[in-house]
Nucleic acid binder design. Sequence first.
DNA 1: ACCACTGTAATAGTATTGTGGTACAGTAAG
DNA 2: CTTACTGTACCACAATACTATTACAGTGGT
Lengths: 129, 129
Amino acid sequence: MFRVDPDSPVPVYEQLKRQIRLGIVSGAFPPEHRMASIRELATELTVNPNTIAKVYGQLETEGFLISRAGSGFYVKDCQESVLETRHELLAELAAEFVARSVELGLTPPEIQAALSEELGRRPALGTDK
Amino acid sequence: MFRVDPDSPVPVYEQLKRQIRLGIVSGAFPPEHRMASIRELATELTVNPNTIAKVYGQLETEGFLISRAGSGFYVKDCQESVLETRHELLAELAAEFVARSVELGLTPPEIQAALSEELGRRPALGTDK
DNA sequence: ACCACTGTAATAGTATTGTGGTACAGTAAG
DNA sequence: CTTACTGTACCACAATACTATTACAGTGGT
């Protein structure tokens, strides 16, 4: 189902978190879908249960999952909250991007241009689903 | 001259690197300007000479400084190379920004909008110098 | 009530990273 | 050639981040 590389410089929990998040927003995991249990997924990926718990916990904080004790983790159906959280995260990413670009002495038009170029470089998203 | 906070979560060498880079691109340190020596700056900021050496070394790799052994570090005058390096760094920042936004399930128009909003939020840059 | 499953919490080991201390080598001026 | 500066390289210590181990507590079906 998922793939993680223990030798990557980016930590395992981060790799997995991104994949799951992508699966949720792409619709692969619909609302109310029950995720694999912590131990199941830990066994499958050959990682520690604690690592999976960390991933699920953070995704719950971000509003993508909800924990039902004794039962499992489920994809959150309250899309309003998810949308709100996503835009908060987006604003943070944008702020950091701008801040670091400005530190390099780059101007707003240059920053806009770089973003447009990067977006144009990518294939269509959400049209192939 | 510079200010660093040892208790910040962002490492000292990173704080200092950003400040120096900003000083160079803003024109506060013109080309051929001789930077303070490693030991001078280390004493002034009460940090280890090794930390300053790390900063200067990385800024040299990025094309902002040049090392003249036995003499000191100087602001690089070859602005072409600096411009090129800056745009490479900008492209990397943009790529990471887009990648992480896409992982959140956000669409190109939303990403563009977030950037515009963030840029609009900032006061004029380079006009107050 | 029991039992097999679920998530949770506390703890410890390991690797990476940031920083400090010290000694080495090269340059420039007297 | 000596001297006082410059950057460079190597090693050690401390803090942090990541992951693993273990034990605990709550649910749900039988």
